[in-house]
Amino acid sequence: MNELKLTEVKKHYGNKSVLDGVTVQLQPNTIYGLLGRNGAGKSTLLNIVTNRIPATAGSVTMNDRDVTNNDEALQQMYLMSEANLYNPRLRVNEIFKETARMYGGFNFGLASRLAHEFGLNVNARNGKLSTGYRSIYKLIVALCVPADYIFLDEPTLGLDANHRDLFYRTLMDTYAERPRTFVIATHLIEEIAHIIERLVIIKTGSVLVDSSVEETLAQSHVILGPQAEVAAYTAGLNVIGEESLGQLKVRYVYGALDDKILPDTVRIDGMDLQKLFIELTNEEGDEHVI
């Protein structure tokens, strides 16, 4: 199995640090969510992994071999991003053929079925497509290339709700049929919350969370109740945020709870992924830590 490893990857533009030593191991046949706020470094990271831009320091390896100018490794990776890599004069079906040449294979059957389902005209020229349909043809390419690592940078950009639903269905279907690794970078966290198995959160160029979704959520708690009781119960815990409503207080805790006795008036709920993300990456969030 192909193992993709990032070790201490750094990227600087002049004095500005975009990635500050990212170390992540991407497992085979796993769907990842790559989350981060605008400017956190998600796209830079994906561009470095797929060798589109060079890292300032650190390495990306597949099976312990550096991916830089390593055609064999690069054939196993495909990055779908906002960047337009194809000539705007090319027709969609010509892009399919060109991809097939570059990757030594392409699932034309699936591509034509998906084009039909999404209502994409494969004879249209790339440059003439709307934002939504440009996303759609790129998604189709991403789902039909024979690579083991598919990186999707904002895959649903410009897609309406019906097309997003169709995309997620198709993703689940094709993943079940041919398991491979997908890394989905998106701001629409709720939509992928149940789809991803593992989670990587980056904040200002560093990895904040790298864990399974199940483990992460098991560590995330919402403590709700009267102000004084909630404060007492959460004392000493890793509080990542709080809100108040009258005398009621909600505290968000990330990490283990201790064995203090829970007062009758205090309730513990689970936290959803989006809420966790917001609290963990809030700029003012740090002030809440006691």
């Binding site: 769907i31 689940m172 279907d173 993943y175 079940a176 939509e191 789809i195 991803i196 198995e197």
Partner: peptide, 15 residues
């Protein structure tokens, strides 16, 4: 099947 449920509700098939 696992795949049908996974598709319909957008849930990872492993889950």
């Amino acid at each position: 099947s696992t795949t049908e449920i996974s598709k319909q509700f957008h849930i990872n098939p492993a889950t």
